[in-house]
Design a protein around this nucleic acid. Structure first.
Length: 201
DNA sequence: CATGGGATTGACT
DNA sequence: GTCAATCCCATGC
């Protein structure tokens, strides 16, 4: 993954990350869900400007932005857009590929589709903590690989972002409709698809 | 210095 | 469906 990949509009980065692989140590997973955040809209931490917390967001593209959510969970983002623009793609769900037993130990016994089906779940499964904030995604402890080795193409659908109270109408969520590991609630496009399959069954 | 609010999750009614 | 857990940081006095 080259630095140029991240120095692009965050909507493109978020969309193109679906189908890529995140690796930390012995655990790896295929990205099946992302969301885009940009300084020009109020749901983004960078909306308020440069503070100690948002310093990473305004820094070089291709770094990890890891922050604590609800006092409990660490959430993983990839910083996007040129340096000086506050934007990042939130990685919200993975399909486990490698180190599944390790993920089970870290999360407690779980069916594989529940190990990484949420932004707080996947950081726990991959042992990604706040100490990795601002670390590079190229040549750093967290690695992002361009496409899953199985060559499977994601079926990318968009939807509204989850868990926010402002700018809720923006369709800046990207999901792989062919995966069962996407977090709830599923976007309308996927629910429709599931209903069709249920009717057919 | 005190307060309030989350880019969530899991347990429970 | 509801709700608590838990902590960093932004804001205001």
């Amino acid at each position: 993954m080259s630095p140029d990949f991240y120095a692009r509009p965050v909507l493109e980065v978020a969309r193109d990350l679906v189908g890529c692989v995140v690796r930390h140590g012995e655990a790896a997973g295929r990205i099946v869900e992302t969301e885009a955040y940009h300084e020009t809209e109020p749901a983004c931490h960078a909306f308020k400007g440069l503070t100690p917390r948002t310093k990473t967001l305004f820094g070089p593209p291709g770094n990890a932005y890891v922050y604590r959510s609800y006092g409990i969970h660490a959430l993983l983002n990839a910083v996007a857009e040129p340096e000086g623009v506050g934007a990042a793609a939130l990685i919200r769900a993975l399909e486990p590929i490698e180190g599944i037993e390790l993920m089970r130990e870290r999360r407690g016994l779980e069916p594989p589709e529940s190990l990484c089906s949420g932004p707080g779940k996947l950081t726990q499964a991959l042992a990604i903590g706040l100490g990795l904030n601002d670390s590079p995604l190229i040549g750093g402890p967290i690695a992002l690989e361009l496409r899953a080795p199985d060559g499977r193409d994601p079926v990318v659908v968009t939807g509204e972002r989850v868990g926010i109270t402002r700018a809720v109408e923006l369709p800046w969520r990207f999901c792989d409709a062919s995966s069962r590991c996407v977090s709830r609630p599923w976007p309308t496009a996927m629910r429709t698809r599931a209903q069709r399959m249920r009717r057919a069954a």
